[in-house]
């Protein structure tokens, strides 16, 4: 999260709020200008005059007897100068180590930064629930599957706030509606729609694939699973080496082709202050698969992908 978002606002947005804040700011400084770094009386007078000009101009606009377009024009110009000056000076004072936090608060400056906000998972339709993506899968003329995803809560095409990627999972079997315990991580997407082509070398034609999706936030948190969408796999004119999912396939079908990781591989990954903890046993349930070694490899692939995404 950027520093900008971590700052607490100190000068209010509206002119009345600005006037009240500046009045407090300059009145406090006027009590002891030297304490706030004004050794030059002329410099202090310049600051004082700029801020007081705005206060006076605002009072003129607030009074129906003196209000006019000209008074508004003068007030706007005075505000522009006073705000620019106050922002600069307030930030100097904020980092002035000779002032205590109490002194800074008395001036209307927050010495402490706001705590970083976590990139929260998107909310669901019902209050208090977590949101998940909605999938739409169409068979494409060239034998692949065109997949679209969206946030069912809004009509917007954009991913929900805080979400960096859509994670696609697939479970392949002889029947549709394969449970998500069989689902294996396929690819992280940022754009849509995208097309999934199954290599003809793998002999998957006629089998069913059930797709699932999850949101991945910029902080590495994953949303609940989307409902599954099943489609039959057609004959696609793509070879294994041309497929973007080549790493998922072997000559025996939907198996791993990745090197094994050590057995004691710690799946807790740390990236700066961001920690990705994937302890969800349903994500890749080892006991449900015929090839448990393959599941372990897929878990490693998934963890590595999440780590790469967080690094990016």
């Amino acid at each position: 999260m950027s520093t900008k978002h971590r700052r607490k606002p100190y000068i209010p947005d509206d002119d009345y709020g600005k006037k009240v804040w500046m009045e407090r700011f300059i009145t406090t400084i006027e009590r002891d200008p030297e304490r706030y770094g004004f050794s030059d009386a002329y410099m202090f007078e310049y600051y004082q005059r700029t801020i007081r000009n705005f206060i006076k101009a605002f009072d003129a606009v607030s009074n129906p007897a003196t209000r006019s377009p000209h008074a508004t024009l003068v007030k706007n110009q005075a505000r522009q100068e006073a705000v620019a000056l106050c922002r600069n000076f307030a930030m100097q004072l904020k980092w002035d180590s000779s002032l205590t936090d109490e002194d800074k608060r008395a001036l209307g400056i927050y010495p402490d930064e706001a705590t970083p906000e976590q990139a929260k998972l998107p909310t669901g339709v019902l209050a208090g629930t977590l949101g998940y993506p909605e999938l739409a899968v169409q068979s494409s003329p060239n034998g692949g599957h065109v997949i679209r995803y969206r946030d069912p809560v809004t009509q917007s095409k954009a991913k929900p706030k805080g979400v960096s990627h859509f994670l696609l999972y697939g479970a392949i079997g002889a029947k549709p509606r394969m449970p998500r315990t069989h689902a294996r991580f396929m690819y992280p997407y940022t754009k849509r729609p995208f097309e999934v082509m199954y290599p003809m070398d793998c002999g998957l034609e006629g089998l069913y694939v059930t797709y699932y999706g999850r949101w991945l936030t910029t902080r590495g948190a994953m949303s609940p699973w989307s409902p599954g969408v099943s489609k039959i796999i057609g004959a696609a004119n793509v070879r294994l080496r041309e497929s973007e999912f080549a790493h998922l396939f072997g000559t025996q079908g939907f198996v791993d082709a990745l090197p094994a990781l050590p057995q004691d591989e710690d799946r807790r990954l740390t990236q700066g202050v961001t920690q990705v903890i994937e302890d969800d046993p349903l994500l890749l349930e080892r006991g449900m698969s015929e090839d448990s070694a393959g599941d372990g490899l897929f878990a490693a692939l998934e963890a590595a992908t999440v780590r790469l995404l967080n690094t990016a």
Binding site: D14, D15, Y16, V61, S62, P64, R67, P69, H70, T72, L73, N76
Partner: peptide, 16 residues
């Protein structure tokens, strides 16, 4: 008379 003048809608003078 005054050219371009911006009036804040939160100012007390806006309504009046």
């Amino acid at each position: 008379q005054y050219g371009e003048v911006y009036q804040s809608t939160l100012d007390p003078g806006w309504d009046e």
